[in-house]
């Protein structure tokens, strides 16, 4: 049991990658968002106009930029940390559990950071200049009740999916991620084949919380997958 906590500490041991790098990336995306806004300005768009607000809020750059890093963090948290955790004396079970705890801590951290930034953005009337960096459509268009679960769940999803790919590499070598990726692709296509006749009616009754449920399911599946793969992995 105690090695669950130790494994979480092991992940938190790299303080910069864990806490600072997401902030750097967020800051860089913020700069890029501002530059894009300036581009609009030079193109003749008027800050604060309906057209300005709409196009600014469509910018999903924040999500893309962080996604890549979070998947990498998820992959390495298993691929290179697992052999070292075993060397330190962690069990495979504790490692999987401790990694999930760390994923949750990371997700909560980013959700809090984004919530604070959104509140700042709203309080300063979009940084006194009409810049829409956190008040964007994909993050819930300025609604904290949407932004917090969106950031939390998507971070958790990206980290756990990265983790299961890392675990497949530890377990099966270079073939692991390829087979896992193709496998997931096939499952999605098969699901579409089955569901496609009902798809229009399903989309008509689509609710946002469906996505949350889907994310939770995928997070649980990835975490269980990570544990299953690591249970029988041979370290070399």
């Amino acid at each position: 049991m105690s090695t669950v906590v130790s494994t979480t500490k092991l992940h938190l041991n790299k303080r910069e990658a864990t806490f600072a790098v997401p902030l750097y990336i967020t800051a860089m995306v913020a700069v890029i968002s501002v530059l894009i806004s300036l581009l609009f300005l030079r193109a003749g768009s008027v800050p604060g106009s309906a057209e300005w607000i709409e196009s600014s809020r469509m910018n999903p750059g924040m999500i893309y930029a962080l996604s890549g890093f979070l998947v990498y963090l998820g992959v390495q948290s298993v691929a290179t940390t697992f052999p070292f955790a075993l060397t330190l004396g962690s069990t495979r079970r504790s490692f999987a559990a401790g990694t999930l705890v760390w994923n949750v801590i990371m997700s909560a951290y980013l959700a809090v950071v984004f919530a604070v930034m959104l509140m700042l953005e709203l309080a300063t009337n979009h940084w006194f200049a009409g810049f829409y960096i956190f008040d964007i459509i994909v993050l819930g268009a300025g609604d904290l009740r949407l932004l917090i679960p969106i950031v939390f769940l998507s971070t958790l999803l990206l980290l756990t999916v990265g983790g299961v790919f890392g675990a497949s590499w530890v377990r099966y070598g270079a073939n692991g991620p390829v087979v896992l990726g193709v496998g997931i692709g096939i499952v999605i296509i098969l699901a579409l084949i089955v569901l496609i006749p009902q798809l229009p009616s399903m989309l008509a009754s689509f609710e946002l919380w469906w996505l949350a449920i889907a994310a939770v399911v995928a997070i649980l599946a990835s975490s269980l997958g990570t544990w299953t793969l690591l249970r029988s992995a041979t370290v070399r």
Binding site: L10, N13, K14, A17, T80, P83, F84, L88, G89, S90
Partner: peptide, 26 residues
Amino acid sequence: SYVRDNQRYPDNYMLHHVLRIAPAFK
């Protein structure tokens, strides 16, 4: 205690990372 002859360490690890985490397990 068992360290492999070709032990892998987490990305970007330096000596102080190892020294800081070892007491949590040992």
